[in-house]
Measured scan of single mutants.
Amino acid sequence: HNLTITQGKLFFHYNPKLCLSEIHKMEEVSGTKGRQERNDIALKTNGDQASCENELLKFSYIRTSFDKILLRWEPYWPPDFRDLLGFMLFYKEAPYQNVTEFDGQDACGSNSWTVVDIDPPLRSNDPKSQNHPGWLMRGLKPWTQYAIFVKTLVTFSDERRTYGAKSDIIYVQTDATNPSVPLDPISVSNSSSQIILKWKPPSDPNGNITHYLVFWERQAEDSELFELDYCLKGLKLPSRTWSPPFESEDSQKHNQSEYEDSAGECCSCPKTDSQILKELEESSFRKTFEDYLHNVVFVPRKTSSGTGAEDPRPSRKRRSLGDVGNVTVAVPTVAAFPNTSSTSVPTSPEEHRPFEKVVNKESLVISGLRHFTGYRIELQACNQDTPEERCSVAAYVSARTMPEAKADDIVGPVTHEIFENNVVHLMWQEPKEPNGLIVLYEVSYRRYGDEELHLCVSRKHFALERGCRLRGLSPGNYSVRIRATSLAGNGSWTEPTYFYVTDYLDVPSNIA
Protein backbone atom coordinates (compact mmCIF):
# COMPACT_ATOMS: atom_id res chain seq x y z
CA HIS A 1 0.00 0.00 0.00
CA ASN A 2 1.14 3.52 -0.75
CA LEU A 3 1.27 5.87 2.23
CA THR A 4 1.71 9.61 1.81
CA ILE A 5 1.66 12.14 4.64
CA THR A 6 1.14 15.51 2.98
CA GLN A 7 1.27 17.51 6.19
CA GLY A 8 2.65 16.77 9.63
CA LYS A 9 5.65 14.79 10.72
CA LEU A 10 6.71 11.54 12.47
CA PHE A 11 7.20 11.13 16.19
CA PHE A 12 8.99 7.99 17.56
CA HIS A 13 9.93 7.50 21.20
CA TYR A 14 10.35 4.50 23.55
CA ASN A 15 10.45 1.72 20.97
CA PRO A 16 13.30 -0.45 22.33
CA LYS A 17 12.78 -3.23 19.77
CA LEU A 18 12.39 -0.92 16.74
CA CYS A 19 15.62 -0.24 14.88
CA LEU A 20 16.34 3.26 13.63
CA SER A 21 16.87 1.90 10.14
CA GLU A 22 13.21 0.88 10.02
CA ILE A 23 12.16 4.38 11.16
CA HIS A 24 14.27 5.94 8.43
CA LYS A 25 12.56 3.67 5.89
CA MET A 26 9.25 4.96 7.17
CA GLU A 27 10.43 8.51 6.51
CA GLU A 28 11.25 7.59 2.93
CA VAL A 29 7.98 5.86 2.05
CA SER A 30 5.77 8.44 3.76
CA GLY A 31 7.45 11.46 2.23
CA THR A 32 8.22 13.10 5.57
CA LYS A 33 11.97 13.03 5.36
CA GLY A 34 13.45 16.34 6.45
CA ARG A 35 10.38 17.53 8.36
CA GLN A 36 11.32 15.97 11.70
CA GLU A 37 13.23 17.93 14.23
CA ARG A 38 16.17 16.44 16.16
CA ASN A 39 14.09 15.35 19.16
CA ASP A 40 11.13 13.93 17.21
CA ILE A 41 12.96 10.64 16.66
CA ALA A 42 14.73 9.67 19.89
CA LEU A 43 18.13 8.10 19.33
CA LYS A 44 18.42 6.60 22.82
CA THR A 45 14.96 5.05 23.30
CA ASN A 46 14.43 3.54 19.85
CA GLY A 47 16.18 0.25 19.14
CA ASP A 48 18.21 0.34 22.33
CA GLN A 49 17.22 -3.30 23.11
CA ALA A 50 17.41 -4.61 19.56
CA SER A 51 20.23 -5.96 17.46
CA CYS A 52 20.04 -3.72 14.45
CA GLU A 53 22.24 -5.13 11.72
CA ASN A 54 23.32 -3.62 8.49
CA GLU A 55 25.85 -6.23 7.31
CA LEU A 56 25.40 -9.82 6.15
CA LEU A 57 27.13 -12.68 7.96
CA LYS A 58 28.01 -15.67 5.81
CA PHE A 59 28.63 -19.21 7.02
CA SER A 60 32.06 -20.48 6.04
CA TYR A 61 31.94 -24.09 7.29
CA ILE A 62 29.13 -26.57 7.98
CA ARG A 63 29.63 -30.17 9.06
CA THR A 64 26.96 -32.59 10.27
CA SER A 65 26.63 -35.86 12.14
CA PHE A 66 23.51 -37.68 13.28
CA ASP A 67 23.16 -35.57 16.46
CA LYS A 68 25.51 -32.61 15.95
CA ILE A 69 26.06 -29.68 13.60
CA LEU A 70 29.36 -27.78 13.53
CA LEU A 71 29.07 -24.22 12.25
CA ARG A 72 31.60 -21.50 11.50
CA TRP A 73 30.98 -18.08 10.00
CA GLU A 74 33.04 -15.21 8.71
CA PRO A 75 34.57 -12.95 11.37
CA TYR A 76 32.92 -9.64 12.09
CA TRP A 77 34.30 -6.73 14.11
CA PRO A 78 32.62 -3.31 14.49
CA PRO A 79 34.66 -0.10 14.13
CA ASP A 80 35.31 -0.25 17.84
CA PHE A 81 35.92 -3.97 18.42
CA ARG A 82 35.10 -3.51 22.11
CA ASP A 83 31.44 -3.00 21.16
CA LEU A 84 31.13 -6.66 20.05
CA LEU A 85 29.79 -8.61 23.04
CA GLY A 86 29.31 -11.85 21.13
CA PHE A 87 26.98 -13.69 18.79
CA MET A 88 23.49 -15.09 19.17
CA LEU A 89 22.81 -18.38 17.38
CA PHE A 90 19.15 -19.17 16.68
CA TYR A 91 17.93 -22.61 15.61
CA LYS A 92 14.81 -24.76 15.61
CA GLU A 93 13.34 -27.77 13.83
CA ALA A 94 11.98 -26.86 10.41
CA PRO A 95 10.24 -29.60 8.40
CA TYR A 96 9.66 -27.08 5.61
CA GLN A 97 11.87 -24.29 4.33
CA ASN A 98 9.40 -21.48 5.00
CA VAL A 99 10.64 -20.20 8.36
CA THR A 100 10.96 -16.51 9.23
CA GLU A 101 12.82 -14.87 12.06
CA PHE A 102 9.62 -13.77 13.75
CA ASP A 103 7.72 -17.08 13.76
CA GLY A 104 5.99 -17.74 17.06
CA GLN A 105 6.82 -14.36 18.54
CA ASP A 106 4.43 -12.99 21.14
CA ALA A 107 3.91 -9.66 22.88
CA CYS A 108 6.29 -10.62 25.68
CA GLY A 109 9.20 -11.03 23.30
CA SER A 110 9.47 -14.82 23.45
CA ASN A 111 9.54 -16.90 20.29
CA SER A 112 9.96 -20.46 19.06
CA TRP A 113 13.72 -20.29 18.52
CA THR A 114 16.39 -21.85 20.70
CA VAL A 115 19.04 -19.20 21.39
CA VAL A 116 22.71 -19.78 22.21
CA ASP A 117 24.97 -16.94 23.37
CA ILE A 118 28.49 -17.29 21.96
CA ASP A 119 31.55 -15.34 23.08
CA PRO A 120 33.55 -13.57 20.37
CA PRO A 121 36.84 -15.20 19.35
CA LEU A 122 40.22 -13.79 20.25
CA ARG A 123 40.99 -10.83 18.05
CA SER A 124 44.15 -11.01 15.98
CA ASN A 125 46.32 -8.01 15.24
CA ASP A 126 46.46 -9.07 11.62
CA PRO A 127 43.12 -8.23 9.94
CA LYS A 128 43.72 -10.92 7.29
CA SER A 129 44.07 -13.79 9.77
CA GLN A 130 41.09 -13.35 12.05
CA ASN A 131 39.66 -16.45 13.71
CA HIS A 132 36.30 -17.61 12.43
CA PRO A 133 33.74 -17.82 15.24
CA GLY A 134 31.63 -20.95 15.44
CA TRP A 135 29.58 -23.31 17.55
CA LEU A 136 29.00 -27.05 17.91
CA MET A 137 25.27 -27.76 18.22
CA ARG A 138 24.69 -30.90 20.30
CA GLY A 139 21.78 -33.10 21.27
CA LEU A 140 19.98 -32.80 17.95
CA LYS A 141 17.58 -35.30 16.45
CA PRO A 142 18.86 -37.57 13.68
CA TRP A 143 17.63 -37.03 10.13
CA THR A 144 15.95 -33.75 11.07
CA GLN A 145 16.08 -30.42 9.23
CA TYR A 146 16.94 -27.35 11.28
CA ALA A 147 16.57 -23.67 10.46
CA ILE A 148 19.60 -21.68 11.65
CA PHE A 149 20.74 -18.08 11.63
CA VAL A 150 23.22 -16.03 13.63
CA LYS A 151 23.51 -12.35 14.45
CA THR A 152 25.81 -10.12 16.45
CA LEU A 153 25.28 -8.71 19.91
CA VAL A 154 26.78 -5.22 20.26
CA THR A 155 26.80 -2.55 22.95
CA PHE A 156 24.97 0.74 22.91
CA SER A 157 26.78 3.39 20.86
CA ASP A 158 26.77 6.95 22.08
CA GLU A 159 27.12 8.18 18.54
CA ARG A 160 24.07 6.04 17.64
CA ARG A 161 25.85 4.56 14.71
CA THR A 162 23.75 1.57 13.72
CA TYR A 163 26.01 -1.35 13.03
CA GLY A 164 25.87 -5.10 13.42
CA ALA A 165 25.54 -8.16 11.22
CA LYS A 166 23.10 -11.00 10.69
CA SER A 167 23.07 -14.06 8.47
CA ASP A 168 20.32 -15.35 6.27
CA ILE A 169 18.31 -18.31 7.53
CA ILE A 170 19.91 -21.53 6.34
CA TYR A 171 18.54 -25.08 6.50
CA VAL A 172 20.76 -27.95 7.60
CA GLN A 173 19.72 -31.58 8.00
CA THR A 174 21.41 -33.94 10.43
CA ASP A 175 22.66 -37.30 9.22
CA ALA A 176 20.79 -40.57 9.46
CA THR A 177 21.65 -43.20 12.05
CA ASN A 178 20.40 -46.58 13.17
CA PRO A 179 16.62 -46.66 13.52
CA SER A 180 14.84 -47.77 16.66
CA VAL A 181 13.39 -51.27 16.86
CA PRO A 182 10.29 -52.18 14.84
CA LEU A 183 7.15 -51.95 16.95
CA ASP A 184 4.57 -54.56 17.92
CA PRO A 185 5.82 -57.64 16.04
CA ILE A 186 3.13 -60.33 15.90
CA SER A 187 3.68 -63.87 14.64
CA VAL A 188 1.03 -66.47 13.94
CA SER A 189 0.87 -69.78 12.12
CA ASN A 190 -1.72 -70.47 9.47
CA SER A 191 -0.49 -73.94 8.48
CA SER A 192 1.94 -76.63 9.52
CA SER A 193 4.72 -75.12 7.40
CA GLN A 194 4.14 -71.35 7.50
CA ILE A 195 4.38 -68.47 9.96
CA ILE A 196 2.94 -65.04 9.21
CA LEU A 197 4.86 -62.12 10.69
CA LYS A 198 3.49 -58.58 10.96
CA TRP A 199 4.94 -55.47 12.58
CA LYS A 200 4.78 -51.68 12.68
CA PRO A 201 7.49 -49.24 11.57
CA PRO A 202 9.95 -47.90 14.17
CA SER A 203 8.89 -44.89 16.19
CA ASP A 204 12.22 -43.24 15.31
CA PRO A 205 13.24 -44.24 11.77
CA ASN A 206 16.24 -41.84 11.92
CA GLY A 207 16.32 -41.92 8.14
CA ASN A 208 14.30 -43.40 5.29
CA ILE A 209 13.49 -47.04 6.04
CA THR A 210 14.72 -48.96 3.01
CA HIS A 211 14.08 -52.54 4.10
CA TYR A 212 13.66 -54.97 6.96
CA LEU A 213 15.71 -58.06 7.75
CA VAL A 214 13.90 -61.09 9.14
CA PHE A 215 15.91 -64.00 10.54
CA TRP A 216 14.38 -67.18 11.88
CA GLU A 217 15.89 -70.01 13.84
CA ARG A 218 14.46 -73.35 14.87
CA GLN A 219 14.31 -73.77 18.63
CA ALA A 220 15.14 -76.99 20.45
CA GLU A 221 12.52 -78.41 22.77
CA ASP A 222 13.07 -78.16 26.52
CA SER A 223 15.66 -80.61 27.80
CA GLU A 224 13.30 -81.86 30.51
CA LEU A 225 11.07 -83.35 27.81
CA PHE A 226 13.85 -85.80 27.00
CA GLU A 227 14.68 -86.62 30.62
CA LEU A 228 11.39 -86.97 32.50
CA ASP A 229 9.32 -90.15 32.57
CA TYR A 230 5.78 -89.00 31.90
CA CYS A 231 4.42 -92.44 32.68
CA LEU A 232 4.99 -91.81 36.39
CA LYS A 233 1.80 -91.25 38.33
CA GLY A 234 1.04 -87.61 39.04
CA LEU A 235 3.28 -86.22 36.30
CA LYS A 236 1.24 -84.08 33.96
CA LEU A 237 1.69 -84.61 30.25
CA PRO A 238 3.45 -81.68 28.54
CA SER A 239 1.67 -79.83 25.79
CA ARG A 240 2.52 -77.04 23.41
CA THR A 241 0.15 -74.82 21.48
CA TRP A 242 0.75 -73.24 18.13
CA SER A 243 0.37 -69.53 17.50
CA PRO A 244 -3.31 -68.72 16.83
CA PRO A 245 -4.31 -66.91 13.65
CA PHE A 246 -4.81 -63.16 13.49
CA GLU A 247 -8.07 -61.65 14.59
CA SER A 248 -10.22 -60.10 11.91
CA GLU A 249 -9.22 -56.71 10.65
CA ASP A 250 -12.37 -55.14 12.06
CA SER A 251 -11.55 -56.27 15.57
CA GLN A 252 -8.11 -54.73 15.31
CA LYS A 253 -9.29 -51.22 14.48
CA HIS A 254 -8.18 -48.66 17.01
CA ASN A 255 -10.48 -46.24 18.75
CA GLN A 256 -13.46 -48.58 18.45
CA SER A 257 -16.13 -49.29 21.02
CA GLU A 258 -15.95 -52.65 22.77
CA TYR A 259 -19.70 -53.02 22.69
CA GLU A 260 -21.70 -53.58 19.56
CA ASP A 261 -25.27 -52.64 19.01
CA SER A 262 -27.41 -55.73 18.66
CA ALA A 263 -29.34 -54.02 15.87
CA GLY A 264 -26.25 -53.73 13.67
CA GLU A 265 -23.01 -51.84 13.36
CA CYS A 266 -22.10 -49.20 15.89
CA CYS A 267 -19.96 -46.13 15.56
CA SER A 268 -16.66 -45.86 17.37
CA CYS A 269 -16.45 -43.85 20.55
CA PRO A 270 -13.97 -40.98 20.34
CA LYS A 271 -11.14 -41.01 22.83
CA THR A 272 -11.17 -38.46 25.61
CA ASP A 273 -8.34 -35.99 26.15
CA SER A 274 -7.18 -37.94 29.19
CA GLN A 275 -7.01 -41.18 27.18
CA ILE A 276 -5.02 -39.50 24.41
CA LEU A 277 -2.66 -37.92 26.96
CA LYS A 278 -2.18 -41.27 28.67
CA GLU A 279 -1.34 -42.96 25.36
CA LEU A 280 1.19 -40.24 24.55
CA GLU A 281 2.82 -40.66 27.97
CA GLU A 282 2.98 -44.44 27.51
CA SER A 283 4.49 -44.02 24.05
CA SER A 284 7.09 -41.58 25.38
CA PHE A 285 7.96 -43.91 28.24
CA ARG A 286 8.30 -46.86 25.88
CA LYS A 287 10.67 -44.94 23.61
CA THR A 288 12.77 -43.82 26.58
CA PHE A 289 12.89 -47.34 27.96
CA GLU A 290 13.88 -48.77 24.56
CA ASP A 291 16.69 -46.25 24.27
CA TYR A 292 17.87 -47.22 27.76
CA LEU A 293 17.91 -50.90 26.85
CA HIS A 294 19.79 -50.23 23.63
CA ASN A 295 22.44 -48.17 25.40
CA VAL A 296 22.87 -50.30 28.53
CA VAL A 297 21.88 -53.88 27.83
CA PHE A 298 23.06 -54.43 24.27
CA VAL A 299 26.82 -54.37 23.80
CA PRO A 300 28.01 -53.83 20.21
CA ARG A 301 30.11 -56.59 18.69
CA LYS A 302 33.77 -55.88 18.17
CA THR A 303 34.67 -55.69 14.53
CA SER A 304 37.85 -57.16 13.20
CA SER A 305 40.92 -54.96 13.47
CA GLY A 306 44.00 -54.79 11.34
CA THR A 307 45.69 -57.51 13.42
CA GLY A 308 43.98 -60.30 11.50
CA ALA A 309 41.47 -61.20 14.21
CA GLU A 310 38.27 -62.60 12.75
CA ASP A 311 34.83 -61.22 13.37
CA PRO A 312 33.01 -63.84 15.48
CA ARG A 313 29.69 -63.20 13.75
CA PRO A 314 28.57 -65.83 11.24
CA SER A 315 28.36 -64.53 7.72
CA ARG A 316 24.92 -63.98 6.28
CA LYS A 317 23.90 -66.29 3.49
CA ARG A 318 20.64 -66.01 1.60
CA ARG A 319 18.66 -69.21 1.28
CA SER A 320 15.58 -70.06 -0.64
CA LEU A 321 12.49 -70.58 1.45
CA GLY A 322 12.33 -74.19 0.32
CA ASP A 323 15.48 -75.00 2.27
CA VAL A 324 14.23 -73.64 5.57
CA GLY A 325 12.56 -76.83 6.74
CA ASN A 326 15.87 -78.55 7.47
CA VAL A 327 17.63 -75.71 9.17
CA THR A 328 18.87 -77.61 12.19
CA VAL A 329 21.06 -80.65 12.68
CA ALA A 330 19.15 -83.76 13.74
CA VAL A 331 20.79 -86.03 16.31
CA PRO A 332 19.36 -89.40 17.39
CA THR A 333 18.16 -89.64 20.98
CA VAL A 334 20.10 -92.85 21.63
CA ALA A 335 22.96 -93.62 19.28
CA ALA A 336 22.69 -97.40 19.70
CA PHE A 337 19.20 -97.58 18.22
CA PRO A 338 18.94 -96.07 14.75
CA ASN A 339 15.16 -96.46 14.52
CA THR A 340 14.46 -93.73 17.08
CA SER A 341 13.32 -90.38 15.71
CA SER A 342 15.59 -87.38 15.35
CA THR A 343 13.53 -84.92 17.37
CA SER A 344 16.37 -83.62 19.51
CA VAL A 345 17.41 -80.42 17.80
CA PRO A 346 20.69 -78.95 19.05
CA THR A 347 21.50 -76.12 16.69
CA SER A 348 25.06 -75.72 15.54
CA PRO A 349 26.38 -72.25 16.40
CA GLU A 350 28.33 -72.16 13.13
CA GLU A 351 25.24 -72.71 11.02
CA HIS A 352 24.03 -69.86 8.85
CA ARG A 353 20.59 -68.66 9.79
CA PRO A 354 18.11 -68.24 6.96
CA PHE A 355 16.83 -64.72 6.45
CA GLU A 356 14.66 -62.70 4.14
CA LYS A 357 14.92 -59.08 3.03
CA VAL A 358 11.55 -57.31 3.09
CA VAL A 359 11.06 -54.12 1.06
CA ASN A 360 8.10 -51.71 1.04
CA LYS A 361 5.89 -53.66 3.42
CA GLU A 362 5.56 -54.61 7.09
CA SER A 363 4.69 -58.30 6.80
CA LEU A 364 6.23 -61.57 5.69
CA VAL A 365 5.07 -65.14 5.19
CA ILE A 366 7.85 -67.54 6.20
CA SER A 367 7.37 -70.84 4.38
CA GLY A 368 9.06 -74.21 4.26
CA LEU A 369 9.10 -74.68 8.04
CA ARG A 370 8.87 -77.91 10.01
CA HIS A 371 5.48 -78.77 11.42
CA PHE A 372 4.71 -78.08 15.09
CA THR A 373 8.12 -76.59 15.74
CA GLY A 374 9.00 -73.49 17.71
CA TYR A 375 10.90 -70.73 15.92
CA ARG A 376 12.57 -67.62 17.24
CA ILE A 377 12.19 -64.76 14.79
CA GLU A 378 14.48 -61.74 14.75
CA LEU A 379 13.35 -58.52 13.08
CA GLN A 380 15.52 -55.51 12.22
CA ALA A 381 14.69 -52.22 10.51
CA CYS A 382 17.30 -50.74 8.17
CA ASN A 383 17.54 -47.28 6.62
CA GLN A 384 20.60 -47.91 4.47
CA ASP A 385 21.55 -50.77 2.19
CA THR A 386 24.90 -49.75 0.73
CA PRO A 387 27.82 -49.41 1.21
CA GLU A 388 26.94 -51.26 4.42
CA GLU A 389 23.67 -51.96 6.14
CA ARG A 390 22.60 -49.64 8.93
CA CYS A 391 20.03 -51.50 10.98
CA SER A 392 18.32 -51.32 14.33
CA VAL A 393 18.66 -53.52 17.35
CA ALA A 394 16.61 -56.66 16.80
CA ALA A 395 13.07 -57.19 18.02
CA TYR A 396 12.34 -60.81 18.92
CA VAL A 397 9.16 -62.84 18.71
CA SER A 398 8.47 -66.56 18.93
CA ALA A 399 5.96 -68.72 17.13
CA ARG A 400 5.14 -72.40 16.67
CA THR A 401 3.79 -73.90 13.47
CA MET A 402 0.56 -75.87 13.44
CA PRO A 403 0.62 -79.67 13.86
CA GLU A 404 0.66 -81.95 10.86
CA ALA A 405 -2.20 -84.40 10.55
CA LYS A 406 -1.15 -88.05 10.96
CA ALA A 407 2.44 -87.07 11.76
CA ASP A 408 2.16 -88.89 15.11
CA ASP A 409 0.80 -92.11 13.60
CA ILE A 410 2.98 -95.20 13.91
CA VAL A 411 3.96 -96.34 10.44
CA GLY A 412 4.51 -99.99 9.67
CA PRO A 413 3.42 -103.18 11.40
CA VAL A 414 3.67 -103.91 15.10
CA THR A 415 5.76 -107.07 15.42
CA HIS A 416 6.14 -109.37 18.38
CA GLU A 417 8.45 -112.03 19.71
CA ILE A 418 7.42 -114.56 22.36
CA PHE A 419 9.94 -115.67 24.98
CA GLU A 420 9.83 -118.11 27.83
CA ASN A 421 7.84 -117.41 30.97
CA ASN A 422 5.07 -115.93 28.82
CA VAL A 423 6.99 -112.75 27.97
CA VAL A 424 6.07 -111.01 24.72
CA HIS A 425 8.36 -108.39 23.20
CA LEU A 426 6.38 -105.87 21.12
CA MET A 427 8.31 -103.79 18.57
CA TRP A 428 7.33 -100.87 16.34
CA GLN A 429 8.84 -97.93 14.52
CA GLU A 430 8.68 -94.45 16.05
CA PRO A 431 7.08 -91.79 13.80
CA LYS A 432 9.83 -90.28 11.68
CA GLU A 433 8.60 -86.67 11.78
CA PRO A 434 6.35 -86.31 14.83
CA ASN A 435 4.75 -83.07 15.98
CA GLY A 436 7.49 -81.81 18.24
CA LEU A 437 8.60 -85.05 19.83
CA ILE A 438 7.04 -88.26 21.14
CA VAL A 439 6.82 -88.22 24.94
CA LEU A 440 5.21 -91.64 25.50
CA TYR A 441 3.36 -94.57 23.93
CA GLU A 442 0.09 -96.12 24.99
CA VAL A 443 -0.18 -99.91 24.59
CA SER A 444 -3.70 -101.36 24.80
CA TYR A 445 -3.94 -105.16 24.90
CA ARG A 446 -6.55 -107.72 25.89
CA ARG A 447 -6.99 -111.44 26.01
CA TYR A 448 -10.02 -112.80 24.24
CA GLY A 449 -12.96 -112.59 26.64
CA ASP A 450 -11.17 -110.32 29.17
CA GLU A 451 -11.16 -106.57 29.75
CA GLU A 452 -8.73 -104.33 27.92
CA LEU A 453 -5.52 -103.44 29.77
CA HIS A 454 -3.29 -100.40 29.24
CA LEU A 455 0.45 -99.98 29.53
CA CYS A 456 2.37 -96.68 29.39
CA VAL A 457 5.78 -96.79 27.69
CA SER A 458 8.05 -93.83 28.29
CA ARG A 459 10.37 -92.35 25.71
CA LYS A 460 13.47 -93.69 27.46
CA HIS A 461 11.97 -97.14 27.89
CA PHE A 462 11.10 -97.34 24.21
CA ALA A 463 14.64 -96.33 23.24
CA LEU A 464 16.10 -99.14 25.38
CA GLU A 465 13.69 -101.89 24.33
CA ARG A 466 12.87 -100.80 20.79
CA GLY A 467 9.35 -101.22 22.05
CA CYS A 468 8.15 -102.85 25.28
CA ARG A 469 7.75 -106.25 26.95
CA LEU A 470 4.51 -107.69 28.25
CA ARG A 471 5.17 -110.01 31.18
CA GLY A 472 3.11 -112.52 33.12
CA LEU A 473 0.58 -113.10 30.38
CA SER A 474 -1.94 -115.85 30.80
CA PRO A 475 -2.23 -118.36 27.96
CA GLY A 476 -4.69 -117.38 25.25
CA ASN A 477 -5.34 -115.27 22.18
CA TYR A 478 -4.35 -111.59 22.46
CA SER A 479 -4.88 -108.44 20.45
CA VAL A 480 -2.78 -105.30 20.87
CA ARG A 481 -3.01 -101.69 19.64
CA ILE A 482 -0.49 -98.89 20.09
CA ARG A 483 -0.61 -95.13 19.71
CA ALA A 484 1.95 -92.39 20.22
CA THR A 485 1.49 -89.20 22.22
CA SER A 486 3.42 -86.12 21.11
CA LEU A 487 3.50 -82.51 22.26
CA ALA A 488 0.50 -81.90 20.02
CA GLY A 489 -1.59 -84.72 21.50
CA ASN A 490 -2.42 -88.30 20.65
CA GLY A 491 -1.85 -89.99 17.34
CA SER A 492 -4.07 -92.68 15.84
CA TRP A 493 -4.27 -96.24 17.11
CA THR A 494 -2.55 -98.86 15.02
CA GLU A 495 -4.46 -101.71 13.49
CA PRO A 496 -4.83 -104.61 15.99
CA THR A 497 -2.04 -107.15 16.03
CA TYR A 498 -2.82 -110.69 17.20
CA PHE A 499 -0.66 -113.30 18.90
CA TYR A 500 -1.16 -116.47 20.91
CA VAL A 501 0.50 -117.24 24.23
CA THR A 502 0.83 -120.90 25.16
CA ASP A 503 1.17 -122.37 28.63
CA TYR A 504 4.91 -122.74 29.00
CA LEU A 505 4.35 -125.70 31.42
CA ASP A 506 2.75 -127.68 28.56
CA VAL A 507 5.68 -127.21 26.21
CA PRO A 508 6.88 -130.72 25.10
CA SER A 509 10.33 -131.70 26.30
CA ASN A 510 13.10 -133.01 24.07
CA ILE A 511 14.43 -135.26 26.83
CA ALA A 512 13.74 -138.97 26.17
Rank of each mutant, 00 (worst) to 15 (best):
S474R: 04
A399T: 09
A336I: 09
S363M: 03
S367H: 05
D408E: 02
L487I: 08
F462Q: 06
P245C: 10
P349Q: 02
E417Y: 03
G476H: 00
T343K: 09
P244M: 12
A309G: 12
E465C: 07
H254P: 06
E389M: 15
N255Y: 07
R318F: 13
V414F: 02
F285Y: 06
T494F: 02
L237M: 09
H461F: 13
C231V: 03
V329Y: 11
C267W: 02
S257I: 04
H416P: 10
S474Q: 09
L369S: 01
D506K: 04
L437K: 11
A407T: 12
G325N: 08
A381E: 03
N206P: 04
L470Y: 01
Q384W: 14
L213R: 11
S398Q: 14
G306K: 13
Q256P: 13
G491W: 01
S363Y: 07
E290D: 12
T502N: 12
R376W: 06
R370M: 13
Q219A: 06
F298K: 02
K361N: 12
V501N: 06
P244W: 07
G368S: 11
P387L: 09
R400Q: 05
P354S: 08
C456F: 02
N421F: 04
A263E: 08
L487T: 07
L213A: 14
P205S: 07
E281W: 02
S348R: 11
L379C: 09
D323K: 03
R459C: 12
S284E: 02
H416K: 06
R446H: 14
S342W: 02
F285N: 04
E279D: 10
T502P: 08
G368L: 04
D506G: 13
V424Q: 02
R466P: 04
E356K: 15
P332F: 15
W493C: 02
V365L: 13
A395C: 08
L453D: 06
G436E: 03
F226L: 09
R446L: 07
V439Y: 14
Q219W: 11
L473S: 01
F246A: 04
P434D: 00
L437A: 12
A405T: 09
S304P: 08
A484T: 07
C456W: 00
F298H: 13
E265W: 12
S398N: 07
T485G: 02
Q252C: 12
P332N: 08
E281K: 15
F355K: 13
A463T: 12
S243V: 10
E420F: 07
L369R: 02
H371I: 09
Q252E: 12
P434F: 07
L213M: 12
H294K: 05
A394H: 14
G374R: 03
P300I: 05
Q380C: 08
Y396W: 10
N477H: 06
L228F: 11
T333A: 15
G476V: 01
E221L: 12
S348L: 12
T272F: 06
P403E: 06
F462C: 02
R286V: 11
R471P: 10
D311R: 05
H454Q: 14
A381K: 15
S479T: 15
T307R: 12
F499H: 01
R447Q: 15
N510I: 13
I377C: 06
Y478C: 00
L426F: 03
L470D: 01
T340Y: 13
Q219V: 06
H352T: 05
E247Q: 13
S284T: 12
P354R: 11
L379N: 01
Y500M: 05
L487M: 08
S239W: 13
G264S: 05
E310G: 08
S284L: 06
D408F: 00
Y445W: 12
S342R: 14
A309R: 12
L232K: 05
N422T: 07
R240M: 13
T502C: 08
N295K: 10
I366P: 00
Y498S: 10
S274T: 11
S315E: 10
E417F: 08
N477M: 07
G449L: 12
C269Y: 12
D250L: 15
C269T: 08
A484L: 02
N477S: 04
E495A: 07
W242V: 14
Y478G: 00
D409A: 07
R459L: 12
Y441Q: 01
T373H: 10
E389Y: 13
V324L: 09
S283R: 09
D450Y: 07
A330V: 08
S363N: 06
F246S: 10
I438D: 02
R481F: 03
F215W: 01
E433I: 15
V334M: 10
V501G: 00
R466T: 05
V439M: 04
T386W: 15
E404K: 10
R483W: 00
G472S: 08
G476A: 02
R286S: 07
L455N: 04
E495Q: 07
P270V: 10
L228I: 11
D229H: 06
T343S: 08
L228K: 06
S248E: 03
P431S: 04
E356F: 08
N206A: 14
V324G: 06
R218D: 08
S305L: 08
F499M: 14
E389D: 10
E452L: 10
V331S: 14
F419Y: 02
K287H: 12
R218N: 11
P346I: 15
L453C: 03
Y375F: 11
L293V: 05
R447F: 02
E247N: 14
S344I: 04
Q256Y: 13
R316A: 08
A330H: 14
V414G: 01
E417M: 06
G489S: 06
S251W: 02
S305T: 14
S392P: 04
N435Y: 01
L277F: 12
A336L: 11
F499R: 01
P475F: 05
V501F: 08
E442I: 07
L440N: 10
T272D: 06
T494A: 03
P434L: 01
P244Y: 14
A394D: 08
C456M: 03
D409F: 12
S363D: 10
L453R: 02
F372I: 01
N421P: 15
H211P: 01
R319P: 07
K317N: 07
C269M: 06
F246M: 08
P312Y: 13
Y230E: 04
L293R: 15
C269K: 03
S363G: 14
E430L: 04
V359L: 09
V324T: 07
K302E: 14
R447S: 10
M402S: 15
V327K: 15
Q219K: 09
N339K: 10
P434K: 04
L464K: 10
V331M: 09
L426I: 02
S284H: 14
Y500S: 10
I418L: 06
Y259L: 04
T288W: 13
L232Q: 06
N255I: 09
K233M: 12
T210Q: 05
D291I: 08
N326V: 04
K302W: 14
P338W: 10
S479L: 02
T415F: 08
T347A: 12
N339T: 07
A399S: 10
P205F: 15
G467K: 07
V414C: 03
T415R: 09
Y498Q: 07
A395W: 07
E282K: 04
P332K: 07
T373L: 05
P349C: 12
Q252L: 13
E433W: 10
A484P: 11
S486N: 02
N208R: 06
R483G: 01
S341Y: 01
T347C: 14
Q384T: 10
G306S: 08
Y448D: 15
S203P: 04
L379T: 04
T485N: 08
C231F: 03
D261N: 11
S262I: 15
R471K: 12
E451K: 05
S392K: 04
E227Q: 09
H425V: 13
F337A: 04
Y478I: 01
S304M: 15
K317Q: 11
Y498P: 03
Y375N: 00
W493L: 03
